[in-house]
Write a protein that binds this DNA or RNA. Structure first.
Lengths: 344, 344
DNA sequence: GTGAAAGCGCTAACAG
DNA sequence: CTGTTAGCGCTTTCAC
């Protein structure tokens, strides 16, 4: 490849002048340099530049599962927000694997100026190590329990769950099952806790045979609903804590011949791209996805500044909590008449 | 950050020995080096190493739309295949934007040893420039018309379309509408051409009022089906050339009160994660997604070799064509009795 | 405004 | 097996 020396030679200037030209400074022989660059097809080496400056003009995004539409949308939000700032976005998919997450963090922390990530669990040690390297960090969707000095963007999980439970109770449901996410992840824990406290608020007894903990993946939604449906007293409604488990649960219900919503009302956390086209259209708690990514990107830009510019002064970390919204469609209807006494 | 010199000093060896240790060669004071590395928390600078060696031990994947489940699955396949080879996978999302694709190619070609990409259009000039840089390249799902010297993995689009048309004709449909993809993209063109030739094979006249060209995005599927439904003679079946446009078309049909399949049979290209849960379950041409990504990754590995090892000898480029399969579900049924004369 | 020169952190001859 | 050293391509003092 042609390098800066070739250009300097061809233009009859020093390499320093080429650098200055590249940086947008005014130099005397600008047009000669421009011509040399064009003719030689010169492209500055990003690697060499990074080695010298320590900057990369790029950021990384690490998500647990890129084939989850929520994270795909989130990534899109990050990219849209970053594009005008001239920063490249590099994407890493940990595939819900801690080892892979660690490899990605190590890798991307050497190639980028900042990382947006959804840590796998709240005990995740990996981000802690990352913070020590001094790289800018933003958590999105998930948090870790220790080390509060990080920018973060979360959604109001508790409010979403409350809206869902209120909705079901309002329809007369009292036997409500739930498929929660892993309790060591932020959304899993927060949604589960909110569920229990909502139950308590409405005077609903938590029935262990109706409560299952999944892993946010489709297969666990399938397994959980099968167990729940085998409970001695079946529920009239079920809350599922994320999109993939909802998909799994719906599939299993269909296979078992359980009709939604006449046999069982279903409300899921996370909207699905096709939720309105499902049979029946799915009632869900919708949360911002693209916007959540964009918000995280903005926090990172505030900390990093524009490429080429000096970094802004450090400022306190920010925590954003975005609102969620219950979208009532066809998968939730009034509870059937009760066989035994219960609150109206 | 602590560098190789610090380690060398602490271990009482030269930097060369540290390098050798890192490369897995046997050196005398291995344990002293190991200890120094651990104590200092030393991480080799990827940037410096790349500058020196010209290798990156990573590959790039550039897709037009990461929120399309097909590409998300494809990326997953690439990652699964690459992981055991110790190569990092860096993902770029061009968002169907040529400018962005170019920026990604420029960027990733400087950070990676090889690129797997689905070019936006068959006239895409960008990959040509990329090939000149000598970086390894694999096309997946899409191709470009010039420059045949590239490894590629495609699916048998023509066969898929033929299966779909045969299926519809077998059900008695003769007024078949179609929403094709952009004719300057490989899958768009191949599927459209196969459609026309299948029509001809079955003696079906191509009716311009039933043929629309979309852009593979959801909104164009919506718009196209609305136009088609406004045609003087409505179709009894429609073929939609990809998943996103199918989603758009189904949504529009629902909004217009058109019932599938009784009013209109629908067959789509690409399976959808929720296709079986839709109302009705969708008949589709399913093509490999994860496997297509994995196949592309294997081609790239064959060309690149393992990290640390010398590159394998160059070999002729390969073209893989993976089979597709018609999955009949509930969205296609027999055509209604014909008002006018027609083949049985 | 400009050029000479040092050096970012690492690897790969090379000589021992 | 080991250490010395040059140099990957760039930016950034520094002196002019």
């Amino acid at each position: 490849m042609t390098n800066i020396q070739d250009v300097a030679k061809a233009a009859g200037v020093s390499t320093a002048s080429v650098t200055r030209y590249l940086a947008g400074q005014t130099i005397r022989r600008a047009d000669a340099v421009k011509q040399a660059i064009d003719e030689l097809g010169y492209r500055p080496s990003h690697v060499a530049r990074s080695l010298k400056t320590g900057r990369h003009d790029s950021i990384g995004v690490i998500v647990p599962d890129i084939s989850n539409p929520f994270f795909a949308a989130l990534v899109k939000g990050v990219e849209r927000e970053m594009r005008p700032h001239g920063m490249q976005v590099i994407l890493g998919n940990s595939d819900e694997d801690a080892g892979r997450e660690e490899a990605l963090v190590r890798e991307l922390s050497q190639r980028t100026d900042g990382i947006i990530m959804a840590p796998l669990t709240e005990n995740d040690e990996i981000p802690l190590a990352l913070m020590k390297t001094g790289i800018a960090l933003v958590f999105v969707d998930r948090d870790i329990s220790s080390g509060p000095d990080v920018d973060r963007v979360l959604v109001d999980n508790a409010s979403g769950v409350r809206q869902a439970v209120d909705h079901l109770v309002g329809l007369g449901h009292t036997r409500i099952a739930a498929i929660s996410g892993p309790l060591d992840s932020t959304p899993g824990r927060m949604r589960h806790e909110a569920l229990l406290s909502s139950f308590e608020h409405h005077g609903i007894a938590a029935d262990d045979s109706l409560l299952r903990i999944g892993d946010f993946r489709e297969a666990s939604g399938r397994a959980a609903i099968q167990e729940i449906w085998a409970a001695p007293q079946r529920p009239t409604a079920v809350f599922v804590a994320n999109n993939l488990m909802t998909t799994g649960a719906l599939t299993a219900l269909m296979e078992m011949g359980v009709r939604v919503p006449s046999d069982l009302s279903v409300v899921g956390f996370d909207d699905l791209p096709l939720a309105a086209l499902l049979d029946p259209p799915l009632t869900v708690i919708a949360r911002p996805d693209v916007d959540q990514g964009a918000a995280a990107a903005r926090l990172l830009v505030e900390r990093l500044g524009e490429p080429g510019q000096p970094s802004p002064a450090p400022h306190p970390t920010q925590s954003l909590v975005l609102p969620v919204e219950l979208v009532v469609r066809g998968s939730t209807i009034a509870a059937p008449a009760l066989p035994e006494g219960s609150p109206a």
